[in-house]
Structures are given as C-alpha cells and as structure tokens.
Design a binder for these strands. Sequence first.
DNA 1: ACCTAACCGAGACGGTACGTCCTGTCTTCTG
DNA 2: CAGAAGACAGGACGTACCGTCTCGGTTAGGT
Lengths: 198, 198, 198, 198
Amino acid sequence: MPAEPDPARRSHESWRAILDATFELLEEGGYESVTMGAIAARAGVGRQTLYRWWPSKAAVVFEVFLDKTNIGPFVDGGEDFPAQLRAFAHGFRALYVEGPAGTRLRELIGAAQTDPDLARAMVEQWFEPRRAPVRNALHEAQKAGLVRTDVAADTALDLVFAPLHYRLLVSGCPVDAEYVDTVVDLALAAMAPGASFA
Amino acid sequence: MPAEPDPARRSHESWRAILDATFELLEEGGYESVTMGAIAARAGVGRQTLYRWWPSKAAVVFEVFLDKTNIGPFVDGGEDFPAQLRAFAHGFRALYVEGPAGTRLRELIGAAQTDPDLARAMVEQWFEPRRAPVRNALHEAQKAGLVRTDVAADTALDLVFAPLHYRLLVSGCPVDAEYVDTVVDLALAAMAPGASFA
Amino acid sequence: MPAEPDPARRSHESWRAILDATFELLEEGGYESVTMGAIAARAGVGRQTLYRWWPSKAAVVFEVFLDKTNIGPFVDGGEDFPAQLRAFAHGFRALYVEGPAGTRLRELIGAAQTDPDLARAMVEQWFEPRRAPVRNALHEAQKAGLVRTDVAADTALDLVFAPLHYRLLVSGCPVDAEYVDTVVDLALAAMAPGASFA
Amino acid sequence: MPAEPDPARRSHESWRAILDATFELLEEGGYESVTMGAIAARAGVGRQTLYRWWPSKAAVVFEVFLDKTNIGPFVDGGEDFPAQLRAFAHGFRALYVEGPAGTRLRELIGAAQTDPDLARAMVEQWFEPRRAPVRNALHEAQKAGLVRTDVAADTALDLVFAPLHYRLLVSGCPVDAEYVDTVVDLALAAMAPGASFA
DNA sequence: ACCTAACCGAGACGGTACGTCCTGTCTTCTG
DNA sequence: CAGAAGACAGGACGTACCGTCTCGGTTAGGT
C-alpha cells in the first residue's frame, strides 16, 4: 500500500487532461466554480486520480498556472540596471498583472492565505524564480557602484514587486504602464547611492 | 415582508452575540473553521438572523475585524512629515501586521480575491480610512516643498503601504521594525524633491 | 443541535416522495441498483434528509416494503383451526412469496444478515405481527383440545412459516399452492394430539 | 489472451494465501469488512489474481466456507431412520448453525439473495450434498414402509431443514438441542404413514 | 539453451457510492 | 410578532471499493 504513489507510473494522458480541463473550467467560470468533481468529470478521470497527485483544488490550479504562464519575464544581461529593471517590471505587468493570468494569480494568492502548503509552493516555484534574476542584476549593479549597498537586496526588490501586487490584491487601482514607470522611477531614486530625504 | 430589514428594529443583543461568537471562533480555529452555522449556534441565534444582516461569512468576519481593530494608527499633526510617516508605519505594523490582526487581515484579503463586495467594503471602510490621513500629511509636505510634486500621491503612498502588505500576503518574510524603518527611509528618499537615479 | 431530529417537523411531502422514488427504483432495477444518492435525486430531496430519518438504504427499503405490503394476511376467527391455518398460509404465499413482494422480502432478509438493526426491525415490525394472530389461533385450538400442548407454540408455528421462507431464501424451489397445502397438511398432522412416529 | 485461465498453472501458494487471508479477515471483522483489496493485500497477492480465479468476494468467501467446513454431517447407514434423522439434525446444528460457521452461512445466504450465481453454487455444492444422504435414508425408510409415500421427499425434508435455517436467518431465536429434538419429533410424527390432523 | 506464453505482485486507472459538511431558504413554535 | 430552532434542497467534499489495465519479473513448457 503506497503512501506516496510512484510518479514513474503516472498516466501522462490523465495528467494533461486534468490540466486542460482545469484550465477550461477556470476560463469559463473562474476559480470559485472549479471543483475537484468538475475537473474529474471534464477530464474523464476518476476523482481518486486527482487526490492521488494533488492535495487540493488550489494545488491543481497552481500547477495549471505554472503550466500556462511559466514563461518569463527575463532580465537581459546586456543592458544597464535601470533599463533592466524597467523592462522586467513592464514585462511582469504584461504577463501576470493584466489579463487572465492576473486574475488567476489573485485567486491563488487569495487561497494561499488559508493554505500554507500552497503559500510555500508559490514562493518557491513562482515568486522566487522571478525575483532571483532581478536580485542578481541588482547585485551586479551594487558591485558596479550604481546601487547603494546599505540596504538588503530583498528590501530593495520589494520597492518594485510590492506595488505591483498591492494594487492587484488590495486597492484594486489599475496597474498601467504609467504606474509601472513611476514605481520604477521611484524605486531607482531610492536605490541611488547616498539617496536620502533630508 | 421587508426586502430590506429595518435596522432600527435590529436586536442589539444578537448583534453583539454574533460578533463575539465569530471572534471566538476565529481565535479558536481560524477563518476556515468559521461557518455561518457555527456562528449562529455559538451566538445562540437563528441562522436567519445572520443572513438577514450579513450577506456572507466574510462580511461578518470583516465586521468583527472592524469592531476589534478599528483603532488607528493616527497621524500626529504636530510633527514633521518624515517623523509622521515613520510613526504611522510602525503603528500600522504593530496594530495590523504582526499578531492575530495580521492573520485576520490576510484571511480577509484572501477571501476578497473572489468576493468583489468584500473587496469594495474593505477598501472603503478600512484601507482608505487609513490611507487618507497619510495622504493629507503628504499633501501638507508637498505644499511645504518638502516632497516632490511630480508624482501622484497614491503612488507615493504605495511605496510604504505596499511592502507592508506584500510581505504579509506574498513572500511571508518577516515585517519587523528594521524592515519598516528601511522601507520608510527608502520611500522618503524616493519622495525627496529632485530625487532620481542617474 | 439536535442529535435526534423532531418527527413533528418532518416534511410529509419529502417523506412520500422518498418512499415513492425508492419504490420506483426497486421496480426498475432491484435492490442492488438502489442507492441513497439515486433515491434523493429521484425524490428531489437533499441527501441529508435521507440520512436524517433513515440510517441506511436497507431501512428505507424496509419502510417502503411496510408501506406497500403491510396488508395481511388475516386469520378469520370464525373458522376451525385447520381451515384458518390453511387460509393464512395461502394468503401469505399469495401476498409475500410470489411476485415482487417476495423479491423485496428476500433482498431485505439478505441485507438483514449483516445489519442487526434491520434484522431487529423486521422481526418486530413485520414477522412478529404476522405470527401473532396465528399464534393466537393456535392457542385457541390448544384450549379446545384440538392441538397438542406438549410443544412450544413458536416451534409449532415454525412448521408452517419456516418452509415458506426456506424455499424462498435457500433452495429456490417453487412455493406453489400444492407445496403450501402439503406443508399445512404435514404441520397439522404433527400438531395433532398424540401424534408421534412410532 | 486466455479468456479462461489455465488451472494447471495456478499458483498453489497464492491460492492458499488467499483462502487463509480471507478466513482471517472474516474472523476479525465479519463479512462486511472483507474486500477484494483487503484480501489481496493480506495475502500478498495481486488484485488481478483474485479476479482471475473468482468472480466476486462472495465466491471467495464461499470457497473458504467450503474449505473450512466441508466435513459432514454424515448419515450412519446402520441405524433406523428416526435415529439417523435425529443424529443428522444434531450434527448439522453443531457444525453449521451455532458458532462462526453459522455466521458465515448466514452472511453467504444473505449475499446469495442478490447474487444468483452464488445462490446456484451454494445449492449445488453445499445444500444439496447435505440433503442427498438424508433423502436417501428417507427413501430407504419409505421402501421399508416406515414413512408415508404420499408426500414428496423434498417437502418432507424441508420439515427438518427449514426450521433450522429459519431461526438462523429470520427469527433469530436460538437453535438449541431441545429445539432440534422437538423439530425432529414433529417432523417424524408428520411423516408417519397415515398421519393426519382430523 | 533459448523463446514465449501465461501467471505473478504491484498498483494506477475510470468510475460509483458513500456519509459528512456547509450553504442559503423556508417553516414552525415560543416568549 | 420577532427570533431561536431547525428541516429542507442542493451540492462539494474526501474516502473506500470496484473491476480493468499495464507494467516488470518469474516460471514453465516447447523448440
């Protein structure tokens, strides 16, 4: 009796059918309308097959999210740091904040507030992989003396990442290109060596 | 048959019993463990009474949140803007980010991702009342020439509000006093007139 | 929270709908095809309503059985005991052994083999009410000196009741009128005062 | 692809392990607790091996029943018919009515009510082999003029077999030695040549 | 000495029924 | 006559089995 099933014996067809069915259901009725039973029925799959490989509907939806949107944005190594940061922020907005991906992201972050496993998985498999290249670029800029070094990198990164998500999750204000530009401007201004208020 | 019940005839005892019961249930088992039925049973109240005055469990929990935490922080008019902003940010952290209120806030924002009515109510009754005094202080500082005027006030405010919530909702990193101080420093640096990267 | 629901508040419409739906399902596909879910769906009733009032599908089916077949046979007080016993046995066969009622009875007795509550309910609400009038007639016959008194009444009754059920449940041999007549003849012969083998 | 598997290649170890595992499970939790999966797991056997050789759990349990209890009772040819019948009835009670064998027999007859294949198998492989020697003894007694010949042998046999099973399956009354003696007395009285009520 | 066919353990699969839980509405009884 | 009590229809949940299937490994003839 296998407490943990053998991934080698997993049915690839069922896997795909489940991801596709879940995606369709999300498009049709949103996160709330998706149920484990509906996924199984749509995919032509037994309910047990779902529960064998995923602990919850949130986990399935997150895998669909990864499957469909795990595509960037990327940080071009050739540019200077301000341009890299700006390009990344605009790319992030385009890919994940506006449009269906933004809705999915909101719903998943929402579910993660009461699902610690999902929260951890999202940080490890989605948020951190997107922060890491920006952090690297930031470190390079620090080495080059372009960015102040008296502030933790992750705190500095939050200056860009946090506003993008805050409007999405909390204030509902639009995250348009102008907002992104302004946020990047402000973040860069704050990161400049010697920047201070007084 | 009143489509909309008459608030004047509302039973004050039931109201209080419901809020108290909900608070207890939240303390005991968290948001997930709260159900409309459990609230009614604990409060010694009919289920209909709940549905008459609140549209959903989220609405009840939000009212409990307001009832228990609608207490500040305040912006002291006498200080200079940097000190006001810093005091506000630390007060916000102490009241709403650490401790049970932070958990409640997370859960409510989580629920709001799939509940537009709740999202709207939270913005109007909770987030905006906390942003407003800071916005006013910001405007005063702008008039005094202490803060740049080429950036929308709400975007500037996000530099402080967003990181506080981002770590709470997304990254799970601690929001300690040092982090708050650094974020305020960076935000102020960005807001300084003429601040820029190059 | 009522551990035991209040029969006074029971919905008569649901009750009838459940019994009717169960009867239809039994007619259509037999005992095996009946499920709690199918009953609820057919009756337009919530699953919980079923579980509120009946502990199992067997209990529902038994109530349907009582509802549809709780009609006799009767023992005519005016006749002599042999005629009474014979009439009863034929009536019993006609009502409960041949036809759909026999199938239902078989299925219920089958289920009762692994369901002690059902077994007890069937004895108390169905078998005993049918044995009692025959036992009374037997006692009258014993008082009149027509039947031996050196044998327990229930043992004597078994001479008639047991063969009817035995063929139904075990041997599968037909229980036709001739068999009933012969069994009654033999039982009466055995009950005659002074009857013995040697 | 063999529609019918080759018994010659059957694994004797698996066979025994299955029967033993099933017996253990029956002892531990009764018929209801036995499942094909549990048998396979306990026996260390693949599920397919079970389905290859038996059509259902009932068939396995019946084979276990045969395996463990297919031992009698026997009819001693040397005695006179009444003594033979009485000895047989007491032996039957001791072996199959009281104790675990009685419970197994009840459960199997119960299952047979909705499983025609099992019903047929039980009649052929278990009931009939036990009736046959008694029927033979009865025929001998009829030839010797000791038993009436105007009644079908199987009907006469039912006078003894039916009450034993009736109490087991239906009324739940004890089938003790006294009951068996009385039933045999009554049956013999009924079988006596010329016996009748009037 | 190999080939191949069938059995074997193992366990994932598509399904179905289960019994529980919760929702939001409706009805009844009671203070 | 307001409200507590709770029955109701509906539906998702996660579990347990069912009977089928596919996968390697082994075993036993048949070449």
